[in-house]
Structures are given as C-alpha cells and as structure tokens.
C-alpha cells in the first residue's frame, strides 16, 4: 500500500520533470536555432554559399571563405568592428558615468523643480529619435563633430540617458539612507562615498545600464548611416547593409551569415560577462 503510493508519487514526479525539461529544451532550441543556423552557414565554402539553405551545415568541410569575403566589403571587417567597439565602449562608459551622477542627484538631493525635471527627462523617451536626426546633424556640424565617431558616441549617449538615469535613480532609491549616513559619519564624502560605498550597492543597476547602452549602440543603424559619411568610419550595422545589398545584384549569403556572427559574438560576450553581477541579495545584511 505504502510502496504503491510511493511508486505513484515517483512516477508523477518523473512525469513532471520530463515535461518541465522537455519544454525547456524545446524553447531553448527555438531561441538558439537561428544562431546555430547562421553559425553553421557562415562556415560553408564559397562554392556552397549560393546553394539552397537546407541542410544549413557545410557539406564539403569547414571553411572561412565567408569571413574572408566579408573582409572585402567596405574598409575591411576589422576596421568596422573597431569602429563599432569604440563607439559602443564610449557610449557605455559615458552613459554609466553620467547616469550614476544624475541618478544619485535625483535620488538624494533636494532642489527646485526636481520632479518636473525628472519627468521632462523621462518624457524625451516619447520622442522618436528619427524625428530629431536633422537637428542633431546640424548641431554636430556646428560643433565640428559631424562624420566623427565621437559625435556619434555623444548622440548615442544622449539617446541612452533618459532610460539610464531612470534606472540609476531607482537603484539609488533602493539603497537605505542609513548606509550613506553611516558612511558620512565614517568620514566618506562626495566621490569617495560614491565609489567606495554606493557604487558596489548599485552595481546591478550599473550593469543593466551598461548592457542596454552597449546593445543599443552596437546595433544602431540609422544615426550611424546619416551622421557618418566616410567609408572607413562606418560601424558594423552599416557594413552589414552594404553586404546585404549585395554587389551587382548578387548577394553573398555566406558573407552575410559571417557578418551576423561577427555582430552577435560581442553581444554574447558582454552579456555573459556582466550577467553574473546581477547578484541577488546583494543588499542582504545591510539593514534589518
């Protein structure tokens, strides 16, 4: 009797586990399939590049032809990757610095029109940035920053800031005031307070801001296309459009898949590196 119940329970548990993991496997297959497909396809040789997409894997051995072809577009894939990395890293660094300072100010200081200003900053999210590209172009031209990666970086930072300031203000709001007061009594002031005490406590917020800033700057196309005019200054998304547009009407699908991989890998690396800082319970033990 007892063993029968146990056996039934074990069967039920096994069934539950199977369904659970089965569903997880199917879901992850759907998410990973495009990447696997593109990755395999990018390893086909030139001869295979124009053959039908199924099966996606290379039939005559692995080759890096597609990547070599990709390098013949624009100023070479290295140049464009470096451009993209520069712009994205610059965007991340500037966004993080400015949003930490702004978020701290909005969270802790009292000043006139604080809430109004905060709402105004958030409200800029409602403006589609395509609609302000022309004025942005003119401003950059006046500043002598048109057709420069620095100018593009500044535009990305501006676009990234409303969300980031919002994130950082919430992150600072979550830090108990007493910790800051304890630190002030311990003699930590201003920058020291921010760096030694508060920064580690808002790290999850900083990581979120950094990941979003990186992904958005890395993938942005329209502003890069319009604000840059030199071939060797284009970022990867612009290069990719050139590859997709093809040469003389012929699209090199192998090169395109290679480009997809080149664009994907840094995003994965950034995410995998930073996601472990989303530590839960970081604040545990601080108060109460």
């Amino acid at each position: 009797m007892n063993t029968a119940i146990k056996a039934r329970r074990a069967r039920k548990k096994l069934f539950g586990n199977t369904v659970f993991h089965g569903f997880g496997l199917i879901a992850s297959f759907f998410f990973l399939a495009p990447f696997i497909w593109a990755g395999l396809a990018s390893l086909r040789s030139n001869a295979e590049a124009q053959s039908p997409p199924l099966p996606p894997w290379p039939k005559n051995g692995i080759s890096v032809d597609a990547y070599l072809t990709l390098d013949t577009f624009g100023a070479g894939v290295w140049q464009h990757t470096m451009n993209s990395l520069l712009v994205s890293a610059g965007t991340v660094v500037l966004t993080v610095i400015v949003s930490i300072l702004a978020g701290y100010g909005f969270s802790r200081y009292r000043f006139p029109f604080k809430n109004l200003m905060f709402v105004l900053i958030i409200a800029t999210l409602m403006i589609p940035f395509q609609s302000i590209l022309t004025p942005l172009f003119i401003i950059l031209a006046k500043l002598g920053l048109n057709n420069s990666l620095l100018g593009l970086t500044l535009v990305y930072v501006t676009l990234q800031l409303p969300f980031s300031v919002f994130m950082m203000r919430n992150a600072f709001d979550a830090v108990p005031r007493e910790i800051e007061e304890a630190a002030r009594i311990d003699g930590a002031r201003d920058l020291k307070l921010l760096v030694r005490v508060l920064f580690p406590l808002v790290l999850p917020g900083v990581v979120t801001v950094a990941i979003f800033a990186f992904l958005n700057a890395w993938n942005e196309f329209l502003a890069a296309l319009i604000l840059l005019s030199d071939n060797e200054k284009y970022t990867l998304p612009v290069l990719m459009t050139a590859v997709r547009a093809g040469r003389l009407g012929a699209i090199n699908w192998g090169a395109l898949q290679a480009g997809v991989m080149v664009m994907t890998i840094p995003c994965l690396v950034v995410f995998l590196l930073l996601q472990r800082y989303y530590m839960r319970g970081l604040m545990a033990g601080a108060v109460k």
């Binding site: 007493e178 007061e181 304890a182 009594i185 406590l201 970081l282």
Partner: peptide, 12 residues
C-alpha cells in the same frame, strides 16, 4: 559615532 536602528552595515 552612531549606531543605527537598522544597523546600516556596508553589505559588500
């Protein structure tokens, strides 16, 4: 030196 009700230790 002050001791707070909520301890206010540096959690990191």
């Amino acid at each position: 030196a002050m001791v707070f009700q909520s301890y206010a230790l540096y959690p990191h």
